[in-house]
């Protein structure tokens, strides 16, 4: 089975007038790095939250590895949200133990190596770290898993360019080759070189799902340039 993610008629309505995600049907394969791109309010984060079971779709269904979103899919999806979801009072080592306990695919050695390479002390409490280092710790936790699907919501927002490079290298070097990585971001130029495919969203609708090569061949443009053309105000 090459399909990893299957979305059928997925819709999320916060109220009668506000459709955050509107009837999206999409199938995503394994072994790809996919950019989930769109302007603010296009429904990217809402879609990601539904894939992780944090929001309940108003209509439609989502299947990952052939299973509806639930306990089984959560064991195989590594999710990096667009916010700090760890308790600030905990030490990094305690958080590593927590991940070890709950995720069978989590490698503590891998996490410790990455922390060491970034000079982050595992005995430090999360709240004592800078914003950038907190984001790196969260990314390390996610990328230390051997998951089938990595869902990264704005992984490079709010960090300096050097840190962006490190984060992208971490993603490329650590993801399981049979897995798929979905990266949601506004900073297309920074991640374009790592993407295989892109999904464009606007006002909750799916605008485009194609390969990066296809955009370059058919339109003779980079993804960033093509995005600016499609979403020109």
């Amino acid at each position: 089975m090459s399909e990893l993610v299957e979305l059928v008629g997925v819709t999320k309505a916060y109220d009668a007038k506000n459709l955050a995600v509107n009837n999206i049907t999409l199938t995503l394969p394994r072994g790809k790095i996919i950019g989930l791109l769109g302007p603010n309010g296009s429904g990217k984060t809402t879609l990601i939250k539904m894939m992780n079971g944090l929001l309940t779709p108003s209509q439609g269904s989502i299947r990952i590895n052939g299973q509806y979103v639930g306990t089984e899919t959560k064991a195989h999806v590594a999710y990096l949200p667009d916010r700090t979801y760890l308790s600030g009072g905990k030490k990094i080592s305690q958080i590593l133990d927590f991940f070890c306990d709950f995720y069978a695919d989590f490698s503590k050695e891998k996490a410790m190596d990455m922390l060491h390479s970034l000079n982050i002390d595992p005995s430090a409490r999360l709240k004592t770290l800078s914003k950038g280092n907190k984001e790196k710790v969260q990314l390390i936790l996610v990328m230390s898993r051997s998951a089938d699907l990595y869902v990264l919501d704005e992984p490079i927002a709010g960090v300096d360019p050097a840190a962006r490079d490190y984060i992208l290298r971490t993603i490329i070097n650590n993801y399981n080759q049979n897995a798929t990585v979905i990266i949601s971001t506004h900073l297309i130029g920074d991640i374009e070189q790592v993407l295989d495919e892109v999904i464009f969203m606007r006002y909750g609708h799916l605008v485009l799902y194609t390969s990066v090569d296809n955009i370059r061949e058919q339109h003779g443009k980079s993804v960033d340039a093509y995005f600016r053309e499609v979403f020109a105000c």
Binding site: L54, T71, E72, A75, R83, T84, Y85, L86, F102, Y103
Partner: peptide, 13 residues
């Protein structure tokens, strides 16, 4: 709240 993002993505019922 934000911590719920971790709680509800744990592979537990």
């Amino acid at each position: 709240t934000d911590e719920g993002y971790l709680t509800h993505t744990l592979p537990v019922k």
